[in-house]
Design a protein around this nucleic acid. Structure first.
Length: 209
DNA sequence: GAAACCTTTCTGTAGCGTCT
DNA sequence: AGACGCTACAGAAAGGTTTC
């Protein structure tokens, strides 16, 4: 099976002259998941990717990616005829950041939406930990950034979207260190899982059909 | 006051038709 | 055939209302 490492829209193809993705899937082959993944990983960082590739790379189900698209207007993959999505590197970077905020840092979708609204829409750079209003749980956040803000003048003790623009305060460094350690651990576990997957693929290949 | 019930919101999930 | 998209639906949690 052949699959070019790179494919980008706009370069002419038999299937779709208007938007060539130069992507020979060779569906006649029994597709090898391991090789498939390896080929995908070899793709140029600037290559466009399908939803299945992005889902695989980010370890996020496809339906979740589509759901995020309905929640984050900033996520706008290119769409071909038939509505198929093709993600640019920028889209993937944004999705990766959203995933990190939602699943690692504990933001809610609303919280991430607020960050996107207040930032430049890319979520680039270091972000503070979520405050109570942006968290998906009700953990005590005795040191959350809003604590040092004088809340006496507010009508209630909630931090609503309608409140004054969020002011970044000195981050709790211990929390950042812990988050960084957890991220490193997650990366390590993902590498281990990739190795296990590769081993399983090899094992399957060695079995009689 | 608190228990029970109802409604709304959030975050996905399932099913099925379409497209490559 | 399998990847994909769309829409309706699920279920858990939070908030609100009613009843005792």
């Amino acid at each position: 099976m052949t699959r070019p490492g790179d494919w980008t829209p706009g370069a002419g193809s038999e299937a779709d002259p208007a938007l060539d993705l130069d992507f020979d899937r060779d569906d006649g082959d029994a597709r090898d998941v391991g090789q498939d993944r390896a080929a995908r990983l070899k793709k140029s960082p600037s290559a466009f990717r399908t939803i299945s590739e992005v889902a695989d790379d980010l370890h996020i189900p496809q339906h979740v990616l589509r759901f995020w698209e309905t929640r984050f207007p900033q996520v706008k993959p290119l769409k071909r005829g038939g509505g198929r999505r093709y993600y640019r590197p920028d889209d993937i970077g944004l999705l990766r950041r959203i995933s990190d905020l939602l699943y690692i840092q504990g933001y809610t979708i609303k919280g991430v939406q607020r960050l996107l609204r207040e930032g430049d829409g890319t979520l680039s750079g270091e972000l503070p930990p979520p405050d109570v209003a942006d968290r998906g749980d009700d953990h005590e956040l005795t040191a959350h950034p809003h604590e040092s803000v004088d809340l006496a003048t507010q009508e209630d003790d909630t931090i609503s979207d309608a409140a004054e623009p969020w002011i970044p305060l000195a981050p709790p460094l211990a929390v950042y260190a812990e988050v960084d350690a957890l991220k490193a651990e997650i990366r390590r576990l993902q590498e281990v899982l990739d190795l296990v997957l590769g081993g399983l693929v090899d094992l399957r290949r060695s079995l009689p059909s």
